[in-house]
Amino acid sequence: MADGDATETGSRTEKIEINRTAYEAYRDTADVQIEGVRRLEGKALETVKVVLLVTLGIVSAWNVFDQLTIDLYVVAAVLSFLYSLWCCIGVYTPSIHPLGLSADAIGEIQRETDLEHHYAELVDTYQEVVEKNREKMQGRTAEFRRGLWAAFAGIALFAASIGRLVTAESSIEPDLGVVLLVLALAYFGYRQ
């Protein structure tokens, strides 16, 4: 009988240790996810700054040079920049990411007397936190990539507008082809 109790106690101790290790791994993963969200928000904010600075530079150039006109490139670039801003602001917009245990869970933990059950509950809670954060991070990352590639497309389109001024080409066919090519490259860049 004593050997059976020792085996059961050893098995219980192992289960407690496994749950404790799993809880710590999930907790660390949740911390890394939150840090990733903060880095992504920082990148989105930097992209917004770049888009606004490029736009400011273009508006300033418009005021200095008389020959600048609104053409297909400029319209497409402005739309790309607006879309980029929309996406990046969406990434930076505060949302609720689960950070860990709720106040209710902390109260339950304080009342818990079974260590095995305690760690099992922590594992379940942090597993949910990690899954929710993973889903939100995937959505935010995709939105940031769309915004970043739209910014690249806008810059390329403004460069094409300047190139059009230099060559004094006035036909719409090359314009439409270049706009579609830049937007297609931006789309395929985003999909990578």
Rank of each mutant, 00 (worst) to 15 (best):
A2Q: 12
A2E: 14
D5C: 02
D5S: 10
D5M: 05
A6H: 04
T9E: 12
S11D: 02
R12K: 12
R12N: 08
T13P: 00
I16N: 02
I18T: 09
I18S: 02
N19F: 09
T21A: 07
T21V: 01
A22V: 01
E24K: 07
A25V: 05
A25Q: 09
R27W: 10
R27M: 10
T29A: 11
A30C: 14
A30K: 14
D31N: 11
Q33S: 02
I34W: 04
I34V: 12
E35P: 02
V37Y: 13
L40Q: 07
E41I: 12
G42I: 07
K43Y: 14
A44I: 09
E46C: 02
K49I: 10
V50A: 06
V51L: 03
V54G: 00
L56F: 01
G57Q: 00
I58T: 02
A61D: 06
A61H: 01
V64G: 00
F65Q: 11
F65K: 14
Q67V: 09
L68T: 11
L68V: 11
L68G: 03
D71N: 15
D71M: 02
D71I: 01
Y73K: 10
Y73I: 11
V74S: 02
V75W: 09
V75T: 15
A76F: 03
L79E: 13
L79W: 04
L79T: 02
S80H: 08
S80P: 08
Y83V: 05
S84W: 01
C88I: 04
V91R: 05
Y92L: 04
Y92K: 11
T93H: 04
T93S: 05
I96V: 13
I96G: 03
H97G: 01
I106Q: 08
E108M: 08
I109V: 00
I109R: 08
R111S: 04
T113Y: 00
E116C: 10
E116M: 06
E116G: 12
Y119F: 15
Y119C: 11
L122T: 05
L122F: 13
V123H: 12
V123E: 13
Y126F: 15
Q127M: 14
Q127S: 15
Q127P: 05
E128R: 14
E128N: 11
E128H: 12
V130F: 01
N133K: 02
N133Y: 05
R134I: 03
K136Q: 11
Q138R: 10
G139P: 00
G139A: 03
F144H: 02
R146K: 15
R146H: 13
G147M: 05
G147F: 03
W149S: 06
W149E: 06
A153P: 07
A153C: 10
G154F: 06
G154W: 03
A156E: 14
F158Y: 15
I162N: 04
R164C: 08
R164E: 06
L165S: 12
V166N: 01
T167W: 01
S170V: 12
D175Y: 05
D175E: 15
L176M: 14
L176I: 13
L176S: 06
G177V: 07
L181I: 09
V182R: 09
L183M: 09
L185T: 10
L185I: 13
L185N: 09
A186K: 13
A186N: 14
G189Q: 08
G189P: 13
Y190N: 14
Y190P: 08
Y190R: 15
Q192E: 11
